[in-house]
Structures are given as C-alpha cells and as structure tokens.
Lab assay of single mutants.
Amino acid sequence: MASQGTKRSYEQMETDGERQNATEIRASVGKMIDGIGRFYIQMCTELKLSDYEGRLIQNSLTIERMVLSAFDERRNKYLEEHPSAGKDPKKTGGPIYKRVDRKWMRELVLYDKEEIRRIWRQANNGDDATAGLTHMMIWHSNLNDTTYQRTRALVRTGMDPRMCSLMQGSTLPRRSGAAGAAVKGVGTMVMELIRMIKRGINDRNFWRGENGRKTRSAYERMCNILKGKFQTAAQRAMMDQVRESRNPGNAEIEDLIFLARSALILRGSVAHKSCLPACVYGPAVASGYDFEKEGYSLVGIDPFKLLQNSQVYSLIRPNENPAHKSQLVWMACNSAAFEDLRVLSFIRGTKVSPRGKLSTRGVQIASNENMDAMESSTLELRSRYWAIRTRSGGNTNQQRASAGQISVQPAFSVQRNLPFDKPTIMAAFTGNTEGRTSDMRAEIIRMMEGAKPEEMSFQGRGVFELSDERAANPIVPSFDMSNEGSYFFGDNAEEYDN
C-alpha cells in the first residue's frame, strides 16, 4: 500500500510504541512475548500442572481467558453494579484439565481477579502490559475465525453469508486497541457500523446529549479505520460520505453494504499476525530463551520457528480426527482463516481442507461434555516452508469459486491468482447506482469489472525454506488448481455463540 510509510507498523501498534527502528520493534515485541511466557509459567505453578498438562491447549485457553477477564475493567465495573446470582464479580476462573488415573478430569478453578492481575503485572515488570493482553485477544479471535462461520451475524446486519472472507476479527472485544483495529476485516468494521446506525434509528437519543457526542466521535473513528483499509480513492470518498452524514440511517447502511461487497474484489488491507497460545510461549521462556534479547516478529519467520520446536497437546472428542484438529489450530496460529487453501497447503506441506470436510468441533470443551471418553493427542503445528504475512489485500483475480465463501483475504505475501467468483459478486451490483453516491458507485463498479483474471497478485513473492531466515531465496510455489480455494466452501461450520 502506498501510504505504508505514514502508518505505524503493526509491531508498533502491538507494543504501543512511538516510531521505533526494526531492532527496537523486535525487542519490544519480544518483551511482550516474554511477559506472556513468564505469566503462563507462574500460572502453571499456581495450578500445580504437570509439564504435559501445561502444554494442553484447553488449559492455555482457560488461563488466557482468566487474565483477560481480570483486566476487563468495563465488564468488571458492570458486574459490580449489576450483581447477578451466583456470579462473584471479583473472581474469575474456568475449567482446568488434569490427568488422573490414566483419565482426563475437569476441575473448575476460581481465583481472585486481583490475584491474577498481581501475577500478570509481576510477570511483566510491574506494568499492565496491555500489548500482551491484546495479543491474547487476537489469538482467540484468530481461533474463532478458523472455527466458526459468522453466517447468522452477517444475515442479521443485512449482509450476504458468502462475504465471510471479510469477517476477520469479528469476535475481537471493543477494547483491543490499535492492534485489534489493524486485524479487523472490512466486513467486521461494516458490521460494527451498521449495528451502531441501527441503534440510532431505533433509539432517538442515541446521537443526542453528552453521551451522543461520545457516540458520534466513536462512529467517526470507526469510519476512519474502515476508510484506511480501502485502497481505492472511490471507496475512500464513499467512506467520507458515510462519516460526514448528519443523521446516519438506511442510506448509510446501503452504502456500507455496497462497500463491503466491493471489497470482495477491490480488497481492503487487513493486517495478519501470528499470535500463538500462551502454552507455546511459556515452555520456550522456561527453556531459557530470551525473546527480548533475541527479538521477535509476528509477521516473519519467528512464529514458524517457534511452532517448529513446540509440543502442544489437545483434548480430542471420541469421533474427532486429531489431524483435522491440528489443521484448525495451525490455521489459527498463522492467522489464515480466509487465505486461499492452495497457498496454505503449499506452505504447510500437507493438504489443507475446507472447514466442512474437517471432523472436528471447536477447541474448547463445553462444561456439560462427558470427560470419560476424552483422549488427548499432539497437535501437528509444523510447516514445510515459511512466508511473510501481508497486510495488503493483493490485486484481484477471477477463479472458480464456491457456493460458500466467494473470495479470499490473503494472509501471506505469496504470488498467486486470487480466487473470487466474479459473476456471483457482480450480480449483486445491478441497477442500484442512484442517489448521492452514484458517481462513486459507478466508478467502483467500473474498477471491479476491469479486474483481470490473468493478473498475478504479489508478483514474484515466494515462500522460503525454514533454514532461509533472511528470506534470501524465494520459492514461487505451484498450486494444484483442481483443489478448492475457499475454506468455508459450501460450508456447515458451527455458528459462533458468545
């Protein structure tokens, strides 16, 4: 993207840094990872977990959730003011799984939030270390993106479920800051804005008074975040219109849905970061690795190297396929839920299948599930090659597409044709070009129609051997075009429920 120079890199967003050079960025990201790792080690000690239990991804998720809940100030305040039966607002906890007599047992633990905050700050040299908290939120978000298709949420806001490739980060909490905003897809931002506008339509006082002023500035800020994701002048001009509207209503909703559809071809720039579970960072720190000293990046080879040398386990339900569970977590670790499966298959070195073909449910185990038949197995999170994460949407291309997802959002900077089903997408653009945004709409449609099938995206960008740390010898991959490109292809993934 041309304006790259004016933006802070995501590592800076990730670490609240002012302008830093590459070495400083690597050190501050490393410091953040160190903090998460030290916190995780301490929690495993508190909970008396064995090494194996500490490497269980379900335990990692519970521990991450506990610290996120302990620092969720708004919710904590709300819980104190609106006490609900049987919930102690000062405590947080969740299921911890232990191996007892050759069987997995679930144990519900409860801790004072104050105590968890103390352990977290102690692991982070006394700081609140917001960057580390956001990092864990993005890992949870990436896992949700890989596990669930947001059909219901899309339909509720009037969008087409086939636009799911635009929904990265749709389950990120509001408090995820600049680093969170960077990884949100165009569809996620559109959905947040539509929800806001709908509230304004239904509630006369939404934009009024002292609160209304705050609401208005939040609305304009979200519009600017979305505008910054678009790469064409016409899309940005249309966002200006939406932002400046005196009284946002149905016309703005129409414009936003139009823009979301246009992003299936004229893709937005959305950041991709490899955020790993805390149970990967903990053992690495415990083994003596100093992330701050060595430096770390979320968008280069580092996460690949770390996963190459990590042992992570997962509980497996009786009829689940461990290899499929591994694929789910591998995609989440690489922030690749909406990437082209052919690119992923090449990088991973084994075939990556669409969601609907995987015999696996989510990673988390519900409290009512029976533990008797639970097994555990090693997650295979290694890769054959590594590639640089991208934040450009890439230019655009036609490809055989599917009944489910009709476009992709690249996660890796790797040369390819970008699949999208042009006739299906263009069919949504018939007729409606009147109104105050008509010239911009016409211009956007013209650009979409001009998108050429034979153009290559990320020209000359390749993948790298894991021994090639400096990215000196790019390998331009070859793809098996007979395979499906979309992950949520004609899909039956479970729906995400809060």
Rank of each mutant, 00 (worst) to 15 (best):
377 S>Y: 05
125 N>D: 09
60 S>F: 04
213 R>N: 11
122 Q>I: 15
96 I>A: 04
138 I>L: 14
336 A>V: 00
58 Q>L: 05
424 T>I: 13
133 L>N: 00
443 E>I: 03
303 P>H: 05
327 Q>R: 04
316 I>R: 04
186 V>D: 01
335 S>C: 15
294 E>G: 13
60 S>K: 12
221 R>D: 02
460 G>Y: 00
120 W>T: 02
167 M>H: 04
316 I>S: 05
90 K>C: 03
32 M>D: 05
251 A>P: 06
165 S>G: 10
318 P>W: 04
196 M>I: 11
361 R>D: 03
225 I>E: 07
28 S>G: 14
431 G>Y: 15
306 L>Y: 07
252 E>K: 10
490 G>Y: 04
443 E>F: 01
176 S>I: 06
301 I>H: 13
358 L>A: 06
86 G>Q: 13
96 I>C: 11
313 Y>S: 11
222 M>I: 09
67 V>G: 14
179 A>H: 05
95 P>W: 10
163 M>W: 08
406 I>S: 13
179 A>T: 07
163 M>Q: 04
351 K>T: 05
393 G>W: 05
118 R>F: 06
346 F>G: 08
480 D>I: 00
141 S>I: 06
313 Y>T: 02
399 Q>T: 06
360 T>S: 14
386 W>Q: 10
241 Q>L: 06
234 A>V: 09
372 D>I: 03
415 Q>G: 10
313 Y>Q: 13
107 E>M: 07
11 E>G: 13
46 E>P: 14
309 N>L: 12
315 L>G: 03
456 M>Q: 13
429 F>D: 01
86 G>L: 13
494 E>R: 04
126 G>R: 12
425 I>W: 00
456 M>E: 00
9 S>V: 00
238 M>I: 12
396 T>K: 12
332 A>Q: 07
319 N>D: 02
211 N>I: 08
148 Y>M: 09
37 G>H: 03
316 I>F: 05
254 E>W: 09
272 H>K: 06
121 R>Q: 07
95 P>I: 03
63 I>M: 14
231 Q>T: 14
50 S>L: 05
167 M>N: 07
195 R>P: 08
171 T>Y: 00
292 E>Q: 13
378 T>R: 15
412 F>V: 07
108 L>G: 12
52 Y>M: 13
394 G>K: 03
48 K>Q: 14
236 R>K: 15
439 D>R: 07
370 N>M: 07
27 A>I: 06
119 I>M: 12
153 A>N: 08
83 P>W: 02
92 T>S: 08
82 H>A: 05
148 Y>C: 09
341 L>Q: 08
217 S>P: 00
117 R>C: 13
118 R>M: 09
274 S>V: 05
207 W>C: 07
370 N>Y: 04
414 V>R: 00
185 G>S: 09
302 D>C: 12
469 E>W: 03
397 N>K: 15
35 G>S: 15
498 N>V: 05
324 H>D: 12
159 M>E: 03
291 F>S: 14
22 A>P: 08
379 L>H: 04
98 K>R: 15
254 E>T: 10
490 G>W: 02
224 N>P: 09
163 M>N: 00
94 G>M: 11
488 F>W: 03
483 N>S: 02
246 R>N: 10
294 E>L: 09
251 A>G: 05
399 Q>Y: 03
296 Y>R: 04
2 A>W: 01
214 K>R: 15
7 K>Q: 02
355 R>P: 08
239 M>Q: 04
381 L>A: 10
60 S>H: 01
375 E>G: 09
155 V>T: 12
427 A>Q: 09
76 N>W: 15
459 Q>G: 15
84 S>N: 15
249 G>M: 08
278 A>W: 09
82 H>Y: 15
341 L>H: 03
367 S>C: 05
242 V>T: 05
493 A>R: 15
287 S>V: 09
356 G>L: 06
424 T>Y: 01
444 I>Q: 13
479 F>D: 01
114 E>D: 14
396 T>E: 00
372 D>G: 09
443 E>H: 04
173 P>T: 11
289 Y>T: 05
264 L>G: 06
345 S>F: 04
291 F>Q: 05
133 L>P: 02
486 S>Y: 12
107 E>I: 05
386 W>A: 07
405 Q>K: 15
161 P>M: 02
259 L>R: 03
27 A>P: 02
75 R>Y: 09
283 P>D: 04
321 N>C: 09
149 Q>S: 11
356 G>T: 04
153 A>W: 03
284 A>C: 14
251 A>M: 05
9 S>W: 04
157 T>G: 01
137 M>T: 11
40 Y>C: 05
203 D>Q: 06
143 L>R: 07
283 P>T: 14
326 S>L: 10
278 A>Y: 05
301 I>D: 03
331 M>I: 14
407 S>V: 01
149 Q>C: 06
274 S>K: 04
118 R>E: 10
103 K>T: 11
158 G>M: 14
270 V>L: 12
102 R>K: 14
11 E>I: 10
374 M>D: 04
205 N>V: 11
107 E>K: 07
496 Y>I: 10
428 A>S: 12
378 T>P: 08
266 L>N: 03
385 Y>Q: 06
250 N>A: 13
342 R>L: 02
411 A>I: 00
70 A>Y: 06
308 Q>L: 14
78 Y>W: 13
374 M>G: 03
134 T>H: 02
310 S>M: 01
282 G>Y: 11
201 I>Y: 00
326 S>Y: 11
57 I>L: 15
436 R>G: 03
382 R>D: 02
1 M>F: 11
450 G>V: 12
288 G>H: 10
167 M>K: 05
447 M>V: 12
110 L>T: 13
342 R>Y: 01
492 N>W: 02
37 G>Y: 05
124 N>C: 12
425 I>Q: 00
238 M>P: 01
407 S>C: 15
176 S>Q: 05
74 R>A: 12
91 K>W: 03
251 A>I: 13
321 N>V: 14
123 A>N: 04
204 R>I: 08
256 L>H: 07
120 W>P: 06
474 P>L: 01
415 Q>N: 01
253 I>N: 10
352 V>S: 11
274 S>Q: 06
169 G>A: 13
56 L>T: 15
242 V>H: 05
400 R>M: 05
310 S>G: 12
20 Q>F: 00
458 F>W: 15
130 T>N: 10
267 R>Q: 07
419 P>V: 15
214 K>Y: 14
257 I>C: 12
148 Y>E: 01
118 R>Y: 08
169 G>R: 02
303 P>W: 04
76 N>R: 03
302 D>R: 07
338 F>S: 11
272 H>G: 09
110 L>Y: 02
285 V>N: 09
235 Q>R: 08
126 G>W: 02
301 I>K: 12
433 T>G: 10
428 A>N: 14
206 F>W: 06
482 S>C: 06
439 D>T: 02
42 Q>P: 09
299 V>M: 14
326 S>T: 09
392 S>Y: 03
13 M>H: 01
105 M>Y: 09
178 A>H: 12
116 I>W: 05
41 I>K: 01
378 T>K: 13
83 P>Q: 15
77 K>T: 10
269 S>D: 09
189 M>F: 01
483 N>W: 00
394 G>C: 01
123 A>H: 04
330 W>A: 05
137 M>R: 03
6 T>K: 00
99 R>S: 11
53 E>P: 05
293 K>N: 10
390 T>M: 03
265 I>Y: 00
496 Y>F: 15
325 K>Q: 11
283 P>G: 15
112 D>N: 15
